[in-house]
Amino acid sequence: MSNQTLNPRPSTLGREAFVVQYGDIYEHSPWVADLTWQRGLGNEQDTPPGLAEAMGQTLRDATPEQQLEVIRAHPDLAGKAALAGELTDDSTREQAGAGLDQCTPEEMARFERLNDAYKSRFGFPFVMAVKGNDRHAILAAFETRLENSRDEERLTAIEQINRIARFRLEARLGA
Rank of each mutant, 00 (worst) to 15 (best):
E147S: 13
P75C: 08
E170V: 10
N43D: 14
C103P: 02
V130A: 12
L35W: 14
S120R: 11
G174M: 15
A33C: 06
E112G: 11
W31D: 12
R93M: 14
R135P: 08
A98Y: 11
E86F: 13
Q67P: 01
A141E: 14
I138C: 10
G56C: 05
L169A: 06
L68S: 00
R93A: 15
E94N: 14
E69R: 14
A98R: 10
I164F: 03
L35C: 02
N148Y: 13
N43I: 07
L41W: 06
D46F: 06
V127K: 02
R93K: 15
S91T: 13
P49G: 05
Q67S: 03
D34P: 00
T63D: 01
E53T: 11
S91W: 04
A117W: 01
T156F: 06
W37E: 06
T88Q: 03
E159Y: 00
S120Q: 14
R72P: 03
C103R: 10
G123I: 13
T88H: 06
D116P: 00
F122M: 07
E94C: 14
Q57G: 00
Y118M: 03
D116E: 13
Q95G: 04
E147L: 15
P105F: 05
D101H: 15
P49Y: 02
Q160W: 01
A117G: 09
N148G: 03
T144W: 12
V70P: 06
F122S: 09
H74R: 05
E112C: 02
P48R: 06
S29Y: 12
